[in-house]
Design a protein around this nucleic acid. Structure first.
Length: 486
RNA sequence: GGCCCCGUCGUCUAGCGGCCUAGGACUCUGGCUUCUCAAGCCAGCUACGAGGGUUCGAAUCCCUUCGGGGCUACCA
């Protein structure tokens, strides 16, 4: 049999910023396409015009780009099966809806939302599975004319025949749904616009999608999708292969929502998470390489990823672990890479304006903070002391440099450092060790603690002597002198 | 309510009948190192939801039960 080239799509409905769950799906779609040497399609499902906005569509494109999930077909890059925005494919959907009508697979339904709700209520009361009761299934032409005369605009509803739909989910195995619980569903709204149920199936067929990896929430809509395939004339063996990915849940309990924690990827970007860290962490949610390894690059992911190794049970999102991975990725950055990631954060927080001198100082300082941060957003706070014009000692530390012992330490430091010619961290350290530790007999943490506060303004800082070297002799001595006046 | 999915340490997971007195990672606790904070290293805590089977043998297979989640729209 001929080897079919894999085509997978990521098809979000941008009704908000892309979130962790969406991205995990996108990542798996992408990884699967790359692993198999197939095509990764990016399609925007914007059939719900009341909820989708252009702004969200742009943001979705931007987010995917930022993450490095390059698509082969889709918005901005095109492809042979476009357009890739469903709002630009409306004629296709109406063509197929009409065909289903002609084939009697679908029918006009004139029931109003109120009528349907009332009947559903009755079904619930009677303890019957709620769903469309088939009232308009066999309307005569006269009845249709009468309804139209009344000014009713019908929806187009798909007929679900008796029987059941069975399909094999790559993650969950064989699944079977009795049509008793899959009521006739709406394909086209009263205003003529298509619904997801129609668009998704039509597009997957037209775009020749071979594998559908998507969220578990769509599992129970699969029989409806298959019904549309059948109406389009596809044979069983031509259906795409389904794989329903487990949920990514929030910190506490249920499904990820805006209520519990930060779900939008834009938030992670601003918080200083690296795309590679996000992808690495997300890859581990619902999937594992099998061996005892967790640090995985994007390239390795494409090599290792298989649907067989995707879990079927939901995973809880753990910020702590993401941070740990992010820290690992940051530490693995080269100085230049680290610099490029740092600059936007430093500028945005007004620590630097971006002059060459500033950048040179940042470049020199980055190595001493690289292993101390877990998120890029911590950089400004750590390097601020190197750039501030109006330097001051933080409130809660002032009392630790105003006692007589500390003052003595600072005076001796000043005496020792003023004549120092070779302003390097090693000579600064040698000088202070001999005067403060050896001659004064102080404990290093006590003595250097006072100097640290005077020079950096805080009890916590990057390594002291390196910091002093970077700050420069003049500024260091000024700060120590001024601390003496506190 | 009905239909469907899921159930190993706090969390993510390895495990696909004997290699499991259940392994790794994150978290947490203690220690080492140490100029603070980190990083690093070492140690420790903690899990097969429950009950029945099948089998010489079950985390692994079956059933029941409990628990969690999804769907049940002219949302996706």
């Amino acid at each position: 049999m001929a080897e079919i080239k894999v085509r997978v799509r990521f098809a979000p409905s941008p009704t908000g910023d892309l979130h962790v769950g969406n991205i995990r799906t996108a990542l798996f779609d992408w990884a699967y396409a790359r692993h198999t040497g197939g095509t990764f399609i990016f399609r925007i499902e914007d059939t719900d015009t009341t909820r989708v906005t252009d702004e969200y569509i742009t943001a979705a494109i931007d987010t995917l780009r930022w993450l490095g999930l390059q698509w082969d077909e889709g918005p901005e890059v095109g492809g042979n099966f476009g357009p890739y925005l469903q709002s630009q494919r409306l004629d296709l959907y109406s063509h197929w809806a009409q065909k289903f009508l002609d084939q009697k697979d679908a029918y006009y339904c004139f029931c109003t939302a109120e009528e349907l709700e009332a009947r559903r209520e009755a079904q619930r009361a009677a303890n019957v599975a709620p769903g469309y009761d088939g009232q308009c299934r066999n309307l005569s032409d006269d009845q249709i004319a009468t309804f139209r005369a009344q000014g009713r605009s019908p929806v187009i509803r798909m007929r679900m025949p008796d029987g059941h739909t069975t399909f094999v989910d790559q993650i969950r195995g064989e699944l079977s749904f009795d049509h008793k619980f899959v009521p006739d569903f709406v394909l086209v709204r009263g205003d003529g616009s298509p619904l997801y149920t129609l668009a998704v199936a039509v597009d997957d067929v037209l775009m020749k999608v071979t594998h559908i990896l998507r969220g578990e929430d769509l599992l129970s809509s699969t029989p409806r999708q298959i019904r549309v395939y059948q109406a389009m004339g596809l044979k069983d063996e031509e259906f795409p292969t389904f794989a329903h990915l487990p949920f990514v849940m929030g910190q506490d309990n249920a499904k990820l929502s805006k209520r519990n924690g930060e779900v939008s990827i834009a938030w992670y970007r601003e918080a200083g998470f690296l795309p590679e860290a996000i992808c690495n962490y997300l890859a581990l949610l619902g999937w594992s390489p099998g061996e005892d390894r967790e640090n995985i690059t994007m390239k390795e992911l494409t090599e290792l990823f298989t649907v067989e190794r995707v879990n079927s049970s939901p995973a809880r999102f753990d910020m702590k672990k993401l941070e740990a991975i992010n820290g690992d990725k940051i530490r693995a950055l080269s100085v230049e890479e680290f610099l490029n990631w740092s600059l936007p954060f430093l500028k945005k927080s007004d620590v630097i304006t971006g002059t060459d001198e500033e950048i040179a100082l940042v470049r020199a300082a980055l190595p001493i903070i690289q292993e101390r941060i877990t998120k890029l957003s911590e950089i400004p706070g750590m390097l601020k002391f190197l750039f501030v014009k109006d330097f001051y000692v933080e409130l809660e530390s002032i009392s630790k440099v105003t006692d007589s012992d500390s003052k003595e330490v600072l005076r001796r430091t000043l005496d020792e450092l003023t004549p120092l010619r070779d302003w390097t961290h090693s000579s600064i350290e040698a000088a202070l060790r001999s005067s403060l530790i050896e001659r004064m007999g102080l404990k290093p943490r006590v003595a250097f603690g006072s100097v640290r506060i005077a020079v950096t303004g805080s009890t916590v800082s990057p390594p002291l002597f390196e910091s002093m070297e970077l700050l420069g002799k003049k500024v260091c001595l000024e700060r120590i002198s001024s601390a003496l006046t506190l």
